[in-house]
Amino acid sequence: LHIEINVNGLRIELHNVSEELAERIREILEKVDDREEARRLAEELIK
């Protein structure tokens, strides 16, 4: 499954994740104000 999410102008592509996991990642990242911090957090979440 390939999912693309957009959060605060940051486009993140997720591969091989469930829709539920992608939604949780999006919800978490929406709470982060700083774009660079959101990017770093996204990288950690999808490892």
Rank of each mutant, 00 (worst) to 15 (best):
residue 5 I to T: 01
residue 3 I to H: 09
residue 19 E to K: 15
residue 28 I to G: 01
residue 45 L to P: 00
residue 17 V to A: 11
residue 42 A to Y: 09
residue 16 N to T: 04
residue 34 D to T: 05
residue 26 R to K: 13
residue 44 E to R: 05
residue 1 L to S: 12
residue 24 R to D: 02
residue 5 I to A: 01
residue 43 E to L: 15
residue 17 V to S: 03
residue 17 V to L: 10
residue 37 E to L: 12
residue 16 N to Q: 06
residue 41 L to R: 07
residue 28 I to K: 04
residue 5 I to V: 07
residue 32 V to Y: 12
residue 27 E to M: 13
residue 31 K to R: 14
residue 21 L to V: 14
residue 26 R to S: 03
residue 43 E to V: 10
residue 22 A to D: 00
residue 43 E to K: 05
residue 45 L to E: 05
residue 15 H to N: 08
residue 15 H to V: 10
residue 2 H to C: 11
residue 17 V to M: 09
residue 33 D to T: 15
residue 37 E to T: 11
residue 9 G to C: 02
residue 23 E to P: 02
residue 13 E to V: 15
residue 13 E to S: 10
residue 3 I to V: 11
residue 8 N to I: 03
residue 33 D to K: 15
residue 37 E to M: 10
residue 16 N to H: 08
residue 36 E to C: 04
residue 32 V to T: 14
residue 18 S to I: 03
residue 38 A to S: 03
residue 35 R to A: 14
residue 40 R to T: 06
residue 22 A to H: 04
residue 4 E to D: 06
residue 32 V to C: 02
residue 42 A to T: 09
residue 29 L to S: 01
residue 43 E to T: 09
residue 15 H to Q: 09
residue 3 I to A: 05
residue 26 R to P: 00
residue 47 K to M: 12
residue 41 L to T: 04
residue 30 E to D: 09
residue 27 E to G: 08
residue 27 E to V: 10
residue 9 G to H: 02
residue 33 D to G: 13
residue 24 R to L: 08
residue 43 E to R: 07
residue 46 I to H: 02
residue 3 I to Y: 09
residue 6 N to K: 04
residue 17 V to I: 13
residue 30 E to F: 11
residue 25 I to P: 00
residue 4 E to H: 10
residue 47 K to F: 12
residue 1 L to E: 08
residue 44 E to L: 10
residue 39 R to D: 02
residue 33 D to P: 13
residue 14 L to H: 01
residue 23 E to I: 13
residue 45 L to C: 04
residue 5 I to P: 01
residue 43 E to D: 12
residue 6 N to Y: 05
residue 24 R to Y: 11
residue 47 K to L: 14
residue 31 K to T: 15
residue 12 I to E: 00
residue 16 N to L: 08
residue 38 A to C: 03
residue 36 E to L: 08
residue 27 E to T: 10
residue 1 L to H: 13
residue 8 N to F: 01
residue 13 E to P: 07
residue 14 L to T: 01
residue 31 K to I: 08
residue 46 I to E: 02
residue 42 A to M: 15
residue 33 D to V: 14
residue 43 E to N: 09
residue 21 L to M: 13
residue 39 R to L: 15
residue 30 E to K: 11
residue 44 E to A: 11
residue 9 G to N: 03
residue 4 E to N: 11
residue 7 V to I: 14
residue 15 H to A: 06
residue 22 A to M: 11
residue 18 S to P: 10
residue 35 R to T: 11
residue 20 E to C: 03
residue 4 E to G: 03
residue 11 R to P: 05
residue 18 S to F: 03
residue 28 I to F: 06
residue 28 I to P: 00
residue 9 G to R: 01
residue 16 N to Y: 07
residue 37 E to G: 04
residue 36 E to N: 10
residue 37 E to F: 10
residue 10 L to M: 13
residue 20 E to Y: 12
residue 32 V to M: 10
residue 26 R to G: 02
residue 16 N to R: 04
residue 28 I to R: 05
residue 29 L to K: 00
residue 27 E to H: 11
residue 42 A to P: 00
residue 41 L to G: 01
residue 10 L to S: 06
residue 29 L to T: 01
residue 11 R to D: 04
residue 29 L to C: 00
residue 29 L to V: 06
residue 45 L to K: 01
residue 29 L to F: 13
residue 11 R to E: 06
residue 10 L to I: 15
residue 47 K to V: 12
residue 32 V to P: 02
residue 18 S to N: 08
residue 15 H to M: 08
residue 9 G to S: 02
residue 47 K to Q: 14
residue 37 E to P: 01
residue 36 E to P: 03
residue 31 K to Q: 13
residue 28 I to C: 02
residue 6 N to V: 14
residue 9 G to M: 01
residue 42 A to R: 01
residue 13 E to Y: 14
residue 19 E to F: 14
residue 41 L to V: 07
residue 4 E to C: 10
residue 34 D to M: 03
residue 24 R to N: 05
residue 12 I to Y: 10
residue 18 S to D: 08
residue 16 N to I: 05
residue 29 L to W: 05
residue 18 S to R: 04
residue 27 E to D: 13
residue 46 I to Y: 08
residue 7 V to D: 03
residue 18 S to V: 04
residue 2 H to W: 09
residue 20 E to H: 12
residue 23 E to K: 13
residue 24 R to E: 05
residue 12 I to W: 12
residue 2 H to A: 09
residue 8 N to Q: 05
residue 4 E to K: 05
residue 1 L to F: 09
residue 17 V to E: 02
residue 13 E to L: 13
residue 6 N to E: 15
residue 9 G to K: 01
residue 28 I to Q: 05
residue 4 E to R: 03
residue 8 N to D: 11
residue 45 L to T: 05
residue 44 E to P: 01
residue 40 R to N: 09
residue 40 R to F: 05
residue 45 L to W: 06
residue 29 L to N: 01
residue 42 A to N: 00
residue 18 S to T: 15
residue 7 V to N: 05
residue 32 V to N: 09
residue 8 N to G: 12
residue 20 E to F: 10
residue 41 L to P: 00
residue 21 L to E: 07
residue 20 E to N: 06
residue 5 I to H: 01
residue 15 H to K: 07
residue 19 E to L: 15
residue 46 I to W: 08
residue 40 R to H: 07
residue 3 I to P: 04
residue 11 R to K: 14
residue 34 D to H: 04
residue 41 L to F: 05
residue 29 L to I: 07
residue 2 H to L: 11
residue 45 L to G: 00
residue 24 R to V: 08
residue 46 I to Q: 05
residue 44 E to V: 08
residue 42 A to F: 14
residue 39 R to F: 13
residue 18 S to M: 03
residue 39 R to Q: 09
residue 30 E to I: 12
residue 29 L to E: 00
residue 47 K to R: 13
residue 40 R to D: 03
residue 44 E to T: 07
residue 45 L to A: 10
residue 12 I to D: 00
residue 19 E to W: 15
residue 38 A to N: 02
residue 9 G to A: 01
residue 25 I to D: 00
residue 18 S to Y: 04
residue 39 R to A: 11
residue 32 V to E: 06
residue 29 L to G: 00
residue 11 R to S: 13
residue 26 R to H: 04
residue 20 E to P: 04
residue 5 I to D: 01
residue 3 I to C: 02
residue 46 I to V: 12
residue 2 H to I: 15
residue 19 E to Y: 14
residue 16 N to E: 05
residue 43 E to M: 14
residue 21 L to P: 00
residue 6 N to S: 07
residue 21 L to T: 09
residue 13 E to G: 03
residue 7 V to P: 01
residue 21 L to S: 04
residue 23 E to H: 12
residue 10 L to Q: 10
residue 19 E to H: 15
residue 23 E to T: 12
residue 33 D to A: 13
residue 21 L to F: 13
residue 28 I to D: 01
residue 4 E to Y: 06
residue 28 I to N: 02
residue 14 L to R: 00
residue 28 I to H: 03
residue 45 L to Q: 03
residue 11 R to M: 14
residue 39 R to E: 04
residue 2 H to G: 07
residue 26 R to V: 07
residue 16 N to D: 10
residue 43 E to S: 06
residue 22 A to S: 05
residue 7 V to K: 03
residue 12 I to N: 00
residue 1 L to C: 05
residue 5 I to K: 00
residue 24 R to H: 07
residue 22 A to L: 11
residue 4 E to P: 02
residue 17 V to P: 05
residue 4 E to T: 15
residue 47 K to G: 12
residue 6 N to G: 04
residue 22 A to R: 04
residue 11 R to L: 15
residue 41 L to Y: 05
residue 13 E to C: 11
residue 32 V to D: 03
residue 27 E to I: 10
residue 10 L to W: 12
residue 27 E to S: 11
residue 16 N to C: 06
residue 22 A to G: 04
residue 26 R to C: 01
